[in-house]
Amino acid sequence: MTEVSQELAPVSPSKLTVRGVSKSFPGRSGTVLALDEVDLEVSEGEFVCILGASGCGKSTLLSLVAGLDAADKGEILTDGRPVVGPGRDRMVMFQDAALFPWRTAMGNVLFGLELKPNLDRAARREVATYYLGLVGLSRFAGASIHELSGGMRQRVALARALAPNPSVLLMDEPFAALDAMTREKLYGDLQEIWRKRRKTIVFVTHNVREACVLADRVVLMTPHPGRMRSSFDIELPRPRDINAENIAALARRISKKLEAMGGEGST
């Protein structure tokens, strides 16, 4: 039996390697090349934002890393081991939360833990309780999903993704559907949680400022076909404030670059 403290102990974040990955889908007018020879290297514990307009293949890339789809070409490695399917070492947070409405907030966080061997009922509850607390929802453990606001749902989704203690966290535009105020609060909380539970994070977004606030590094992607273009290291101190002068200036620079490449991003 695994001890709860052992279960909650931080795992070392993984190094993620994407090498020469291509992926195409059948479309209405022939096959669409969603990703074309994409390379990406994310080091242990790094927070990388992939920035690009809708349709640039950034969500496709995330699905491939998650192991939900298979690449046509190229390889994806975590700590040198090839990704062959979904795994608890890489958890995903989806845009529309994707919570299970037949379970409570607690039940949703428990879902992944129930599939983890060597955890008894009490231990699972203790672990889930810890993560609900981490995202600030201790009081809402028993709430039905439809009773929660959009921001709270994303918090539950974050807790659910963190609960199996993955070494990589993949976030697919998780805040895109939220209002600005809720989003800003979540930027702060996410940075704080990331500081506490060091994970390698790949965060997909079309929001330039969001990328600037969160990332260690922003990677730009352009569509048709999806390609990695330039990348920006962001060395501003944390926690960062989305309304700060330096974030705005940086966002302007990145937006210009994106426009010059023919892509679009919202600031």
Binding site: P86, G87, F94, R103, L115
Partner: peptide, 23 residues
């Protein structure tokens, strides 16, 4: 997305059928 989310958490086969699809 329900199925995708369940798969990332390690659900498959009968577990998916009874714990995800059915509910």
């Amino acid at each position: 997305v329900y199925l995708r989310a369940a798969r990332t958490m390690g659900s498959k086969g009968l577990h998916t059928m009874f714990r995800v699809l059915l509910p």
